[in-house]
Design a protein around this nucleic acid. Structure first.
Lengths: 190, 190
DNA sequence: CTTTAACTGTCTATCGATAGATAGGCGACG
DNA sequence: CGTCGCCTATCTATCGATAGACAGTTAAAG
């Protein structure tokens, strides 16, 4: 059974995702990527004509997979606190996995070097997260206005991304855990 | 009056700081840097033998200047709330200035490509901030234990860095403002 | 069937740009 | 004179991207 076009494309995207989460979009190299999946860089260009195409495809899939998982959480439990636990665990898992970061978090830092199509996907990821968090908050605080819910959701999203960023910077996952706990204690997170 | 060695060194560091805050450490180029300050790239190497030397000097100065400013705040007012306002304003100013980021925030995202001496400076910056925030918190909540104060200080630092990161990613400074306000409302920030 | 044509996925080879870094020279100044 | 600050010139490495060839597959035409 030979590799189909889709197989190779998947392999490239998987390797690229890991590289970006570890070293950022700028560190993504067609040559290195090709070496990892066992083809030549010219063949990577066959699947993704430009680096921007690859980056955008990566970010889009990342958002979609995240949205699917979060929807599953939402359908599994009505407990906002439990959902938030699982949510924070997603970002923790990236750190635990070789000190990786959220794809869109790391891309936000590299924003200036990003092609426009990649930036658009970064925005969509943030929107998706805030939307989900707003739903969670509306369960935990049903009497709160939509406006306030969204602001608080944005704050939670930013705070968790920040916790990941700083913990990564210090190469210390304990910082992430303690920070999330402090968010809970102060009431930022349900 | 010709330029002294110190003058040129200062000029290089100033330009480099702006570049890193805008585009990250990886985007820092000796050639571009030299062009900006009106010398040649070989001359930049005269002042900073390697890129790591430049990056570390940059981060060290950034931490020192920040510490000096924060000490000034601490000496100016006893009002924790006012100090926190000024603190949040520092990070806001970076965003307002061409969507720049905290030097150490952006370096945390690029951590893997950083020379060891630069990483060490990133750690020191975080420590310095947490130390200052702990002092502020001990004024606002004098009855709280040192352990809890430090955790909360770390949480505030991470949350503000995150707010800056996300607002930058969305190219929308309003997101920063609303997020900081939400931090206040929930009680994370005094 | 068989032949022919197109398509697919990968290859080799190469382009121009840019990176960090180094060797050695030149003029000013104390 | 000798050091200081900056220069020209150049090296090697790597980047994204492209052109052109080749083998394997598919499918239509005869």
């Amino acid at each position: 059974m030979a590799k189909t076009k889709t197989d190779m494309r998947e392999a490239v995207m998987t390797a690229a995702k890991a590289t970006v989460q570890s070293h950022g979009y700028n560190a993504l190299s067609f040559r290195e990527l090709a070496k990892e999946v066992g083809i030549k860089s010219a063949s990577v260009h066959y699947h993704f004509p430009t680096k921007g195409d690859l980056g955008a495809a990566l970010a889009r899939r990342y958002t979609e997979e995240g949205a699917a998982y979060l929807a599953e959480l939402l359908a599994t439990s009505n407990d906002a606190s439990w959902c938030m636990d699982r949510y924070a665990a997603i970002f923790r898992a990236a750190l635990a996995n070789d000190n990786r970061m959220c794809l869109c978090g790391i891309m936000s830092a590299e924003l200036d070097g990003l092609p426009a199509e990649v930036r658009a996907e970064v925005d969509r990821f943030a929107e998706m997260n805030v939307g989900w968090l707003t739903q969670i908050l509306s369960r935990a605080r049903p009497s709160t206005g939509e406006q306030d819910l969204q602001e608080c959701a944005m704050a939670i999203f930013a705070a968790i991304e920040g916790a990941q960023l700083i913990a990564r910077g210090c190469r210390n996952i304990g910082i992430y855990d303690r920070t999330i706990r402090a968010y809970r204690t102060t009431g930022l997170i349900p």
